[in-house]
Structure formats: structure tokens, C-alpha cells
Simulated scan of single mutants.
Amino acid sequence: MKEMTAKELEHKLMSNEAVNIIDVREVEEVAEGKIPKALHIPLRLLEFRMHELDKNKEYVIVCHSGGRSSRAVQFLESYGFQVINMNGGMLAWEGETE
């Protein structure tokens, strides 16, 4: 499983790199703030919404602490998606939120 730190992701965003982020937390968690431009798809709905994703793109998966995002990464990898788990989740995120 490919992984990156919250700092690495923050650096990519600050450098204006094209990064696709999926936040797999629940609605009430996302209401407290999410990484700007992150697509919100709760983990329990991922199976039903993965048709919205492009297998030619790479996605960084984010959750609260890293557990759900690692499950999401394993699930999406099994369907041929290019995915990276953000270690530590939003607990490790020190960057801007919306």
C-alpha cells in the first residue's frame, strides 16, 4: 500500500500540484472541516460511488486517523485504482480546511 504523510500532501497542495483527494469520513466529521477540494465519499458508500472515479488518476485517501482510509485503499486497489493512504488522517493534518 502506498502511503504519504499529511505534510507531504500539504506540500503538494501548496505547490499547486494536481492532487485528487477523497475523504472517506462520515458527514458529521466532514462538517467539522475537510481538506480543500477533497471529494467526500463516506467509506460505507464507496462501493456504490466508485463509478465516479477515474482509474487513470491517482487518489489520496483521507479519514480521521488512517484506519478507514487504509481499508478504502485496499478496496479501491482491488478494483484497479491508483490510491495512496494519508498516514494519520485528519488528526495529522495541520493545513487549511474548508
Rank of each mutant, 00 (worst) to 15 (best):
M1W: 08
K2R: 15
K2I: 05
K2V: 05
K2T: 11
E3I: 12
M4G: 01
M4D: 04
M4W: 04
T5R: 08
T5Y: 04
A6Q: 05
A6C: 07
A6T: 06
A6W: 02
K7H: 05
H11F: 00
H11I: 10
H11V: 07
K12F: 13
K12W: 12
K12S: 15
L13M: 14
L13V: 09
M14P: 00
N16V: 05
N16W: 02
A18T: 14
A18C: 06
A18H: 11
I22G: 01
I22C: 03
I22K: 07
I22R: 03
D23Q: 09
R25P: 04
R25K: 09
E26C: 08
V27E: 15
V27G: 07
V27M: 07
V27P: 14
E28L: 07
E28Q: 12
E28I: 07
E29D: 14
E29K: 09
E29N: 10
V30R: 09
E32M: 11
E32S: 12
K37N: 15
K37L: 08
K37G: 04
K37Y: 10
A38V: 06
L39M: 15
P42E: 03
P42S: 06
R44C: 10
R44Y: 09
R44Q: 13
R44A: 14
L45Y: 09
L45M: 13
L45E: 14
L46K: 02
L46C: 03
E47D: 13
E47N: 13
E47W: 00
F48A: 11
F48K: 12
R49C: 00
M50C: 05
H51V: 09
E52I: 03
L53M: 11
D54M: 08
D54W: 00
D54Q: 07
K55R: 15
K55D: 10
K55H: 12
K55S: 13
N56D: 15
N56L: 08
K57M: 13
Y59W: 04
V60G: 00
V60N: 06
V60F: 10
I61C: 04
V62T: 05
V62I: 15
V62H: 07
C63F: 00
H64F: 05
G66K: 08
G66M: 11
G66V: 02
G67W: 00
G67F: 06
G67A: 14
R68G: 01
R68E: 07
S69H: 00
S70T: 13
S70V: 09
R71S: 13
A72I: 02
A72M: 06
A72H: 00
V73H: 01
V73E: 03
F75R: 05
L76Q: 04
S78G: 12
S78L: 04
Y79G: 05
Y79I: 00
Y79R: 07
G80T: 12
F81R: 00
Q82E: 11
Q82C: 09
Q82K: 15
Q82N: 15
V83H: 00
V83K: 01
V83Q: 05
I84N: 02
N85A: 06
M86V: 03
